[in-house]
Amino acid sequence: MTKASSMAGPSRTAGRINRRSKSAGPEPYDFRRPTNLSREHIRTLQIAYETFARQFTTILTTSLRAVSQVTLISIEQFTYDEYISSLSSPTIVAKLSMEPLPGTAIAEFSLAIAMTSIDHMLGGSGGPQPERPLTEIEAPLLNGLMDRMLGELRYAFEGIASTRPQLTGIEYNPQFVQAGGASDPVIVASFEMRVGAEECVMTICLPFGMIFPKLQGDRNDVQLSPAQRAAREAAHRNLVAGMESVPLDVAVRFQQMRMRPEDLINLRPGDVVTLNHPTTQPLAVTTAGLTFAHAVPGTQGSRLACLVVAPAKEEDRR
């Protein structure tokens, strides 16, 4: 899986954007951590983030009086540690609350873009910017721009959840941001962000547990046409019918017993191994290690068989 990372310099940032936009080959898949977002979820987020990108483009252009552009690149799932490790330092890492949703979201973009935006707000023409923390005069200017950005984020997400995004703090080193556990899954949206001649990849990181329940609810509340409902019901019937015909390995088992290694090694044909299974207790019928029925042994014609019976009562097992 390709990670997102933010670069401060224009040339390095441009190279990164090109790599992300042109990557169309196969990607590694970790079966230990399957992706839980369906295509419907991705599409729902894509619509919201594309709306946000258009609105934020307008905010930047009118506020900075400079040609600006914000374009959605991708929506991907990472762990929190993978996301934080992919970010450069220093950078702008804005911590966001999304009340009433739980958790902390993150909006991240390059320090160079932040300084260029502030320069335009102060009447400058952009150009090379110093790489340093914001001053007491510059910080409120960026906070004001961020507040307007969060207003557009709230508007874009109205179709998914009613939220009140608020800026709760800004860090310059991603490692100092504690917004989740290292293995917590997060959903990261990457945007190509341009302000004048400066460009970078901006990211918005949402905890998986924050947004996934809302995506599920949104999907369940979708109004379907009669044709869509009939197609979904037919697909469900076909799935159930297909699952009912899948062959499974079934075993009829006695209770487990313990033996010492030396006893196992010394076993010879004709030896008798005493089982702990009571004669009054039926055998367990299992599949994939799960017991789903009980049975007593028998025969049917020339074959061994078992008769499914009710499980033994607790007093019969004693």
Score class of each variant (00 low, 15 high):
Leu275Asp: 09
Leu304Asp: 09
Met193Pro: 01
Glu244Trp: 06
Thr62Asp: 12
Ala66Ser: 13
Gly151Phe: 02
Val240Lys: 12
His277Leu: 02
Leu72Gly: 02
Phe78Gln: 08
Val67Tyr: 09
Glu50Phe: 02
Thr287Met: 14
Ser68Thr: 05
Leu96Ala: 05
Tyr172Asn: 02
Glu136Ser: 13
Cys306Tyr: 07
Ser89Glu: 01
Asn173Thr: 00
Val222Gly: 07
Gln166Pro: 11
Asp249Gln: 14
Ile59Tyr: 04
Val93Asp: 01
Val272Phe: 04
Val240Trp: 05
Glu171Cys: 04
Ala189Trp: 00
Asp271Thr: 07
Val201Leu: 08
Ala310Leu: 08
Leu283Lys: 02
Gly289Ser: 04
His294Trp: 08
Lys95Gly: 07
Leu134Glu: 00
Val240Pro: 04
Gly289Thr: 06
Pro226Asn: 07
Ala107Tyr: 07
Arg268Ser: 12
Leu304Arg: 10
Glu262Asn: 13
Leu45His: 01
Thr13His: 13
Gly196Phe: 01
Asp263Cys: 09
Gly25His: 13
Glu152Ala: 12
Leu145Ala: 03
Met202Leu: 08
Arg43Lys: 13
Arg16Phe: 13
Pro185Trp: 00
Asp119Glu: 07
Ala293Glu: 01
Phe56Lys: 10
Ile84Tyr: 05
Arg219Tyr: 08
Thr2Glu: 14
Asp249Thr: 12
Gln300Cys: 12
Ile59His: 05
Glu198Leu: 06
